[in-house]
Design a protein around this nucleic acid. Sequence first.
DNA 1: ATGAAAGCGCTAACAC
DNA 2: GTGTTAGCGCTTTCAT
Lengths: 329, 329
Amino acid sequence: MANIQEVAKQAGVSIATVSRVLNNTSKVSEKTRFKVEKAIQELNYAPSMLGRNLRNSESRLLLVLIHTFSNPYYTEIITGIEDYAIENNYNILLCETDDNLQREDIFLNMVRNKLADGIISMNPTVHVDKLKELANSHSIVLCSDYYEDADIPYIAIDNTIAAYRAVKYLITMGNNKIGLINFNENLLYAKQRRIGFENALNEFQLPICDEWIHHSDGLTFQDGVEAMRRMLRSKNRPTAVFAISDTLAIGALKELHAQGIKVPQEMAIIGFDNIAFSSMTTPTLTTVSQPKYQMGYRSAKMVIDHIQGLTIENVIMDYELIIRESTLE
Amino acid sequence: MANIQEVAKQAGVSIATVSRVLNNTSKVSEKTRFKVEKAIQELNYAPSMLGRNLRNSESRLLLVLIHTFSNPYYTEIITGIEDYAIENNYNILLCETDDNLQREDIFLNMVRNKLADGIISMNPTVHVDKLKELANSHSIVLCSDYYEDADIPYIAIDNTIAAYRAVKYLITMGNNKIGLINFNENLLYAKQRRIGFENALNEFQLPICDEWIHHSDGLTFQDGVEAMRRMLRSKNRPTAVFAISDTLAIGALKELHAQGIKVPQEMAIIGFDNIAFSSMTTPTLTTVSQPKYQMGYRSAKMVIDHIQGLTIENVIMDYELIIRESTLE
DNA sequence: ATGAAAGCGCTAACAC
DNA sequence: GTGTTAGCGCTTTCAT
């Protein structure tokens, strides 16, 4: 592939002029521009990003850290990120860390290495200390989960209140035995949603029963199936269950169906995230919807603003309760 | 962030020596190595990929082109690609083209631009001529859909036979009125699956009825809902439907449920792809499973082999019929 | 074993 | 309006 030298030679001009034509950065005479463009055509030339980036010391690449592609929660957020990024001439590098510290290191190093200009992390299991240190000198934004007191800018919803509202809704629907399917509570959002859950029960003086609280090892459908299976082992069952993610809720729904337990008549289920599948289940799933696209879009804006030296502030977004069949009587 | 100069200065050696320590490329005395490593530590130095890549004229980045993140079909393939890539010191750049020619151009240019070393395209709507031309001088592999006579290496299953087997299975289950929900037949795989569908019907001398063949505009659940809705407008209904993707099949299932039509008793449904959600629906979905992880893994191997100058050959993978509730009586 | 220097492809400051 | 040139951070050849 031709380089700028060859184009210059072919057009009979200097490389500076070629660069000017390429970047439209100062006046070039019609005639010269024409010659250069002709040469570019003939040589099928495209400028090397590598050279350009090295010179400009920027890559216009954003790293997006996620735990695993298979979690459908991310898809809409990523679309939002990508839209803003593309609009602003950035591209995104989607990085799956998969709980692998080594892989994580590779990605974090890419921004120290100048291969990427900033990071949007949606990966709460990331090595916090490293991220914190990196955030001192680089542009990092956390999306949808964050760390308290870590001083890394974030965008998220108020999980405590959202969970509180969801559970309160279950209560107002007449449920007074309410269970929880949670994930690893080291994650802030999981902890917060549990607190919201407890706040609601406390407010209505309902029991918080350990038998009705189960933790899953992961966030796949199958994890939800297993959590519900464990919950159903006890004869004393809740009449409603709040699952911390739609994937878990959908798995739970499946297990209830397998055991012939009617939803919502015998047990109501509410999820969290409003993933696309949640309206395709039988019954359809009541859930808490985060403005995922907007969260992605704005987190991209945040990180790009930060790269360009602006100061940015944490953002708390609104959520919405989407009521569907799994909680209606 | 420090650069190689500063490290050299701090260690009291030349930049060449630092580079040698970094890359372990020739003998360096213990003492010098130690000094350099100390300086690297102190300055918290990490080499710039940009400089390195420019020098080596490689980026060790692979582009993965997909149509949209929201299609769950891709997730497992991408995991396979990523595993092989990481094992071989490559990273992947996941690119969503979204039918946008301009966006597509950006991505294709990245490989001409030396920002990426190769492309795995799973995006059948990509501008074929451009891709073909690019494939002459760069490393490109098509995964799961391909172009006939385009001479671009690919990995895929035999869609015609897979579809044939799926439909034949419906026939042997006693169905003789079989419908099809297809997608845009400009896509090779859609065309091939239709041919397989017709081959099976022809073999058993069953009618191919236009009323029972519907095309959707997209591959979302909603598209499946709408396709089934259209099919149900005619009184004369098929007793089984082959949907070209699980997403469409799941949408169809949803619409059948909404209209109170029992699956599989009144209508059997079979999908294609075995996405994770297909075992979570009610009823669970019979489907054709492609070895998605392996297809990803091997396509990454193919493109990296090609980058490294090896000759590569097209690969046809096996598929598997996964029988679940949506076709059982 | 180590250093000096060229050069990867590009942009921008400076000179004309 | 256009050309010359330095330099972005690195690797590698050639000396020593």
